[in-house]
Design a protein around this nucleic acid. Sequence first.
DNA 1: CCGTATCCTAGCAGATACTG
DNA 2: CAGTATCTGCTAGGATACGG
Lengths: 116, 116
Amino acid sequence: MKEEKCDISGIWEILGKRWSLHILRNLSTNGIVRFNELKRLLPGISSTVLSERLIELEHEGLITKKIYSEIPIRVEYSLTMRTTELESILKQLSNWVDKWKYYEEKHKITTDSINR
Amino acid sequence: MKEEKCDISGIWEILGKRWSLHILRNLSTNGIVRFNELKRLLPGISSTVLSERLIELEHEGLITKKIYSEIPIRVEYSLTMRTTELESILKQLSNWVDKWKYYEEKHKITTDSINR
DNA sequence: CCGTATCCTAGCAGATACTG
DNA sequence: CAGTATCTGCTAGGATACGG
């Protein structure tokens, strides 16, 4: 267990970490998402790191974890109310990326290297 | 080597990398910045990685590199025109983080209650 | 001043096993 | 299902020193 993080004020550090942005973006897009669902949405992430990031994000108050004690158990993650503004920003970022990619497509000569 | 985009298309991959967001944010805030200046603005980053990121960002067309063959040499980095919209988004993100931190300060009474 | 080359540690994936 | 624990192996990244 490592609990030592003391430099930059949390958020920027977390946003800078791998997967964080993608997790938030997915939660923003899909609303309420379960653990394995999220894992499927993020190709390449491991359970370990996904778990870590979710804990960090929850600890910072960016996301909410809701546990349903059913069988099998169900856990749902979602953004908190305080991240409403962030959602809008992520949405804009997402749109910007799409637009950017669109121009890339048009201006790129042979982009077949990009698999799909 | 891995020039094929296995996962997400270009930009998202880069934005997800460590330091990228911070670099862009700083360029957005400060306009034209030199290498070592940027390094000073990003406590903890190494020359190696800063150099890598700058190359990636330039390659994707997000930033511009301008070299002045003086002695000593001078290199200036800045955002491109195409990132104007992104600037606005980064600005919002920055504001959001500041606001968030402000509330954190006020509400952070017993942070350690969660630690460990 | 602006980087790159080198070395070495931390982070992370992937597989597997186990718990609640 | 939703994790945690462990181990292997690889890659990202920090520190430093040197060359352009």
